[in-house]
Design a protein around this nucleic acid. Structure first.
Length: 486
RNA sequence: GGCGGCAUAGCCAAGUGGCUAAGGCAGUGGUCUGCAAAACCAUUAUUCCCCAGUUCGACUCUGGGUGCCGCCUCCA
């Protein structure tokens, strides 16, 4: 089995070929740190978290780099507004980002380089471009000469003439061509600056990714990722910079994920229709958010609704209930096997089917379908298990439950103790209710007395009373149990 | 205007040139129960936006149309 990925560069799904066998060098564009991250950023980190986990699961070693852009116009502006330094501001939001990552349960990249810590590398790269006449200096600014780079626009499928026709580019007298972009910007008084051959200034937006990826991964590496909105101009410009300087191919595989939308509109800072990760996690546990994000393929838009979150939550409860049921089975039995061939196969093939789905361009939606399919099968089996089950069947159920947890780990779900998960959930809701367990037990005792007297009206009345307070009761041969209605 | 993507049941969402069009949520009928709940069983798209073409055969390929979204300015 080979892993195939959709490559933006070629526009096709293709087998993932790496430069070094069984090693993947991955560079993901991180955030510009001037504010809290929203759900769209969360999707980005979750998607690459899953990809890294899966590649490692499939036996590859992965060098995972995600940068911080900690100097740019927005940071300068925001710092001025808050009467602080760009350094303080960016450090504050890097810290916030790290907190968010921990809350989301994401792995930490192997390296999280910052632009401001790579100024010498950036200057060196610009000097190379200057020497090749791919860049020019005007009044302390340095621009990239896009007309000199023959493949400019190849990644995003545009050409310079079309883009100029679009004419949405602010024409600057300093530029030879309106499409030329800044590599180095001269600084205004009061702005953070670094010394350079072109005078005091700071790097442009795109150059740090070229400089840092080169430093840590070399001129050519395996996968470069980010949101679809980075294809143009950010990644296009990175290619122009890196390939212009090195003369070698920059990246073999480009992976771009889709946006999170609200009411089918892109969630973005400029539209103001965003929900920060923090706000989100106050409302829903991270595991539910992960399930929601992975319920759609990473390249399609993902529309956020409370209904969708509710669906994810119900689905997760279903998975944990299934795991809890298996955990509650006896350890041993001496009966005959009762699991049919078809069901047995379904359970045994889970891992294989899960991998097939993820091999196919990380199709998490399909993979989750297989998980639910197995959950359904396990539920069916446990429900029909005879009083003295077969040892073989018990072993298969335990094994399947472990497989569920193992594949769940790739998505960052199902890692809690199932019984504890369900209890914690009950308790959380219970804490917000206006009834104590003692009161509930008291009412159930009263109801059971009524039932013994066959006073069904009274019994039903108590049950209805409890239900109003979100308490559901279950009568069974071994007594009455209750749970919070979720 | 240029470039790209999407359109599958009430909602969400996979998928394939021909075998039953996954799965989740919601709904309905049944088993169980004093009645319920939970769980389980069954059931819910003769059909995949519309039109034309290619093909023995298309939802899947080609062309056209419609609608929605994104990028072209900062953006994950």
């Amino acid at each position: 089995m080979t892993i195939s990925t959709y490559n933006t560069r070629t526009g096709k799904k293709e087998p993932l070929a790496t430069i070094k066998e069984n090693h993947v060098n991955l560079y993901v564009c991180g955030i510009t740190v001037y504010d809290y991250c929203h759900l769209g950023h969360a999707r980005s980190t979750l998607v690459f978290d899953m990809i890294v986990r899966y590649l490692r699961y499939r036996g590859k070693t992965v060098t995972f780099i995600r940068n911080f852009t900690d100097i740019d116009d927005k940071i300068i502006k925001r710092a001025a507004e808050q009467n602080t330094t760009t350094e303080e501001l960016s450090n504050r939001f890097i810290q916030a980002f790290h907190e968010d990552m921990i809350s989301l349960g994401n792995l930490t990249p192997d390296l999280e380089p910052k632009a401001t810590e790579h100024i010498p590398e950036i200057i060196e790269l610009i000097e190379t471009l200057m020497a090749k006449e791919l860049a020019y200096e005007t009044e302390g600014d340095v621009y990239y000469r896009v007309e000199r780079f023959p493949h400019y626009g190849a990644l995003s499928g545009r050409n310079l003439d079309d883009m100029m026709a679009g004419a949405r580019i602010a024409v600057s007298a300093k530029k030879e061509n309106p499409m030329d972009f800044a590599l180095w910007k001269s600084s205004k008084p009061g702005e953070p600056t670094w010394e350079s051959p072109w005078g005091p200034g700071r790097p442009g937006w795109h150059i740090e990714c070229s400089a840092m990826s080169k430093k840590y991964l070399g001129d050519t590496f395996d996968i470069h990722g980010g949101g679809k909105d980075l294809i143009f101009p950010h990644h296009e410009n990175e290619i122009a910079q890196s390939e212009g300087a090195s003369g070698k191919p920059f990246v073999n595989t480009w992976i771009h994920h889709g946006f999170v939308t609200i009411k089918d509109e892109k969630m973005s800072k400029s539209l103001g229709n965003f929900l920060t990760i923090r706000e989100m996690l106050e409302r829903y546990p991270a595991e539910i958010l992960r399930l929601f994000v992975f319920s759609a393929h990473y390249r399609t838009p993902l529309d956020f609704t409370d209904q969708a979150m509710h669906d994810a939550e119900t689905g997760l409860d279903r998975m944990y209930s299934c795991l809890a049921a298996v955990a509650g089975l006896p350890q041993s039995g001496s009966g005959a096997s009762a699991i049919g061939k078809k069901d047995r196969q379904k359970l045994e093939k889970l891992e294989e089917r899960f991998c097939q789905a993820l091999d196919n361009d990380f199709n998490t939606a399909q993979a989750l379908g297989h998980i639910f399919d197995v959950v359904k099968t396990i539920n069916k089996i446990t429900h029909h298990l005879p009083e003295n089950p077969g040892q073989e069947d018990l072993d298969l159920l335990t094994k399947s439950s472990n497989t569920l947890k193992r594949v769940g780990e790739i998505l960052g779900i199902l890692q809690q103790e199932p019984v504890a998960y369900l209890q914690a959930k009950q308790q959380k809701v219970l804490a917000s209710l206006e009834i104590s367990p003692a009161e509930i037990d008291n009412l159930i005792a009263q109801r059971n007395r009524a039932r013994d007297e066959k006073n069904w009206d009274r019994a039903d009345q108590i049950r209805a009373e409890l239900l109003v307070k979100q308490i559901e009761i279950k009568d069974s041969a071994s007594g009455t149990t209750w749970q919070v209605k979720i």
